[in-house]
Nucleic acid binder design. Structure first.
Lengths: 247, 247
DNA sequence: GTAATAGTGTCTCTTAGACAATATGCC
DNA sequence: GGCATATTGTCTAAGAGACACTATTAC
């Protein structure tokens, strides 16, 4: 049933190819992921990652397919999108051998316009606690989500991707706070600022401050490094080596 | 032609799924990659990465397909194998929209038994200079190879995967030398030893030494960390910050 | 004034890298 | 002894983390 014939040399039947996206945002002090309620079998009524079959007539490449899904669901066209991993086996879909190329995206909550996709009854943000949402997900999506969360946490450690979870203008305090929400631990303020400063990934917006019931904070904007990710020379924190001054 | 119908909801035609492997070894002071000469069209007579279509009747999952190819080509069953990236678009194969899930493997030259695969006329090691071999490769395989080399170099920086390029027993000098061959630069001896020592990734084999025209060297073996990769707290060398004591 | 957050400075600790000294085999 | 490589030690510098201090707004 799932074994369409391939035109290649030996005519092996080929698996169905899907693209699924783990879309993260940070909102209300929580890391959240976008999930859609399935309107069709299998797993009718269960929540799942947004995604669908690759459409070879429309999509020039896999990333285009992922970006199409991302725009359909959130309306956000230009944001951080990265291929996560490709899952393929005979068990993950009851209909047979399938391959899912999973991507993960980071969007600023303020820029998202949720629209219900054509075959998704409902698309909603779900809070992440630990390594999961408190729901049974369709297919192996709980597993994919878990690996995406691990990848996100691991990349926060040595790259600057977290800026893509923020609005265009942000304070260093907000930037640090995003780290703290996702990593679930407090960071050192001066280390964080020094690290961000040396990496040259943000620049102050002259004369722009965020005011509130406290000292106004300088607003910054992300300095695009032309596709090149910024890496930090050291991990932001290295377990086993936390020390106190007065033990 | 390439658009077999998928059994899924909207019956989109689905691309062909292939698995390709970049198999690295270090031999004769050089980083090498295994390439096979294609015996069929397209790209008949060109060199290509070992690989082929996923066989959904035989392969339980994508990694099994990759491991099957690896064993067919090298005879090596248990070694380092990691998913690299998934390439999928309409242009990479003249026959139409295809998806290739690329893996990369590290093997010890001493453990390889090259066998010509069934549809590969010739399988041979090719030396890598810079980011390429001196050959025109089939499909987008030059691009895949380049990304695999980058990934390998990048991972040497913060993981211990290079041990998989060595025989079971090796000296620290040999271990360091593998790094130097791949990274194309000399490393500091005491830093290297300190780093390897602290990471606890190798252990001396009591009473076993490698002899030659010099002081005998202690032989070590890799300490398996039960599937967990070992990460180093810092990059092995961070550009822009090289300093000399007497400038 | 107080509360609250912004921003800076100082000290310590870990680890990489430069460089050198010593060790030990074979010839 | 001489050569070549192994192994260890000492010093410096970069950068992370602890902690504390000052700054500036709203109230």
């Amino acid at each position: 049933m799932n074994q369409a014939l391939s035109p290649h040399a030996k005519h092996y039947p080929t698996p169905t190819v899907m693209v699924d996206i783990v879309i993260f945002t940070v909102e209300d002090e929580l890391l959240k992921v976008l999930l859609v309620k399935r309107g069709i079998e299998p797993f009718l009524g269960h929540y799942a990652l947004p995604g669908g079959a690759v459409r070879i007539a429309q999509d020039a490449c896999l990333e285009d397919a992922a970006r199409r899904e991302l725009i359909e669901e959130t309306g956000v066209a230009n944001t951080y999108l990265e291929q996560l991993y490709t899952y393929g086996n005979a068990q993950r879909d009851p209909r047979g051998w399938t391959v899912s190329v999973a991507y993960f995206a980071l969007v600023a909550a303020s820029e998202v316009q949720l629209k219900a996709g054509s075959d998704a009854a409902e698309a909603r943000w779900h809070s992440i606690f630990g390594n999961q949402v408190g729901l049974l997900l369709a297919f192996d999506h709980a597993h994919i989500l878990q690996e995406a969360i691990e990848r996100l946490r691991s990349k926060l450690d040595y790259t600057d991707i977290a800026v893509h979870l923020l609005a265009q203008e942000f304070t260093l305090g907000e930037f640090q706070h995003v780290y703290e929400i996702i990593m679930q631990e407090k960071l050192n303020k001066s280390s964080f600022r020094q690290r961000v400063d040396r990496a040259g990934i943000v620049e102050p917006i002259a004369g722009k401050m965020r005011t509130g019931a406290n000292r106004p904070a300088q607003l910054y904007r992300f300095v695009s490094s032309e596709g090149k990710r910024v890496f930090f020379p050291r991990s932001i924190a290295w377990a086993e080596s936390k020390h106190q001054r007065n033990p």
